[in-house]
């Protein structure tokens, strides 16, 4: 292995991105590596894109900047694939690892025609089947063991047993090990086409364009009320779906929705503002006749 492996994780608030970065690091530590795992904290909102980083090394790690040129970019949510920031700095021989049910061709297309190394795993499905919960981290760990060869499945098994057995019992250990095993076996690996000597994907400077003297003083925002331009709808991992025949137009949902995403006309419930509904599920929780259910976004999109 090279001296140090640097990994950048992408996901959405609530998906366990930070935990995943940490889990991998901890497992690697028990296999004898020096480790670092840290999040890139933003406003901690469910569904908002967030990043985390893992460094694994044979020698002590002293660097404390964010990972600039990752050896591996791991994406926990394939709705993020369109973002230009996703592949930023990825080494030409680096890996893009995606949790997705989609085909490699679809994923490559969504990732802007990415043609480097790609690994795919439907970790969400495995997690739902084996763990009965949407915890894609565990199967992904199995896939990463296979992909990196950093440590063995036995190392990981020992680690999981050590951490879960006392607290959750043998049953939980067994299902987690099963999830890891399936991740290890089911990960789909495509080496892609990498021309030798290809440069890493260029860093994109986002939102950091204005020099200080061109900014309004005192952190003022001159176009107040611009939140509408911010598509919080992109954060959705679940979306509300209404059964109109059950709806009594009580407008509780409108009252409680934190993002003003319930559309109302003439005092009657009309639907959801998809550009701004972030899928928090509050409307579903407060709806008296239970007319709203939350459906996983990717499946809802696929169904549509």
């Amino acid at each position: 292995m090279q001296e140090m492996i640097e990994i950048r994780w992408h996901g959405r608030g609530g998906q366990g991105v930070v935990t995943a970065a940490r889990l991998l690091a901890e497992a690697a530590m028990e296999a004898g590596y020096f480790i670092q795992a840290f999040p890139d904290y933003g406003p901690e909102r469910s569904g908002a894109p967030i990043r985390a980083f893992t460094r694994l090394s044979r020698s002590p790690i002293s660097i404390h900047s964010q990972v600039q040129t990752p050896d591996m970019v791991i994406v926990l949510d394939d709705t993020l694939l369109g973002s230009p920031l996703l592949l930023e700095g990825l080494k030409s021989e680096g890996w893009l690892v995606v949790n997705s049910a989609r085909s490699p061709e679809q994923v490559r297309r969504q990732a802007g025609g990415y043609n480097g190394r790609l690994a795919l795993l439907d970790a969400t499905r495995i997690a739902l089947e084996v763990l009965k919960r949407n915890l894609p981290n565990t199967p992904l760990l199995g896939a990463l063991v296979r992909l990196t060869g950093l440590f063995s499945l036995e190392d990981l098994t020992r680690h999981i047993r050590h951490h879960l057995a006392a607290k959750f019992g043998e049953e939980v250990v067994r299902s987690n090990l099963e999830a890891v095993r399936r991740g290890f076996e089911e990960v789909w690996i495509d080496p892609g086409r990498i021309a030798s000597g290809e440069r890493p994907i260029e860093a994109v400077q986002s939102g950091m364009a204005l020099p200080w003297f061109e900014l309004p003083r005192g952190g003022l925002i001159l176009d107040a009320g611009n939140a509408i331009a911010y598509r919080t709808g992109d954060w959705r991992t679940f979306r509300p779906v209404v059964e109109m025949e059950k709806c009594t137009h009580c407008l509780y949902c409108w009252l409680y929705c934190p993002d003003d995403a319930i559309q109302v006309r003439g005092g009657r419930f009309l639907g959801f503002d998809e550009a701004h509904c972030k899928g928090c599920g509050i409307c579903a929780a407060v709806c008296p006749p239970k007319a709203i259910t939350m459906v996983e976004e990717s499946r809802a999109v696929a169904a549509a």
Binding site: G42, M208, L210, W212, F213, L215, G219, L220, L222
Partner: peptide, 25 residues
């Protein structure tokens, strides 16, 4: 007539520039 937002959130992509502004003042 001209609504403004005061005291908004300002992360590492802008905070430093605003501090630089204070230096100038």
């Amino acid at each position: 007539e001209r609504p403004l937002t005061f005291g908004a959130l300002d992360f590492y992509d802008y905070y430093f520039e605003h501090k630089r502004h204070q230096v100038e003042a």
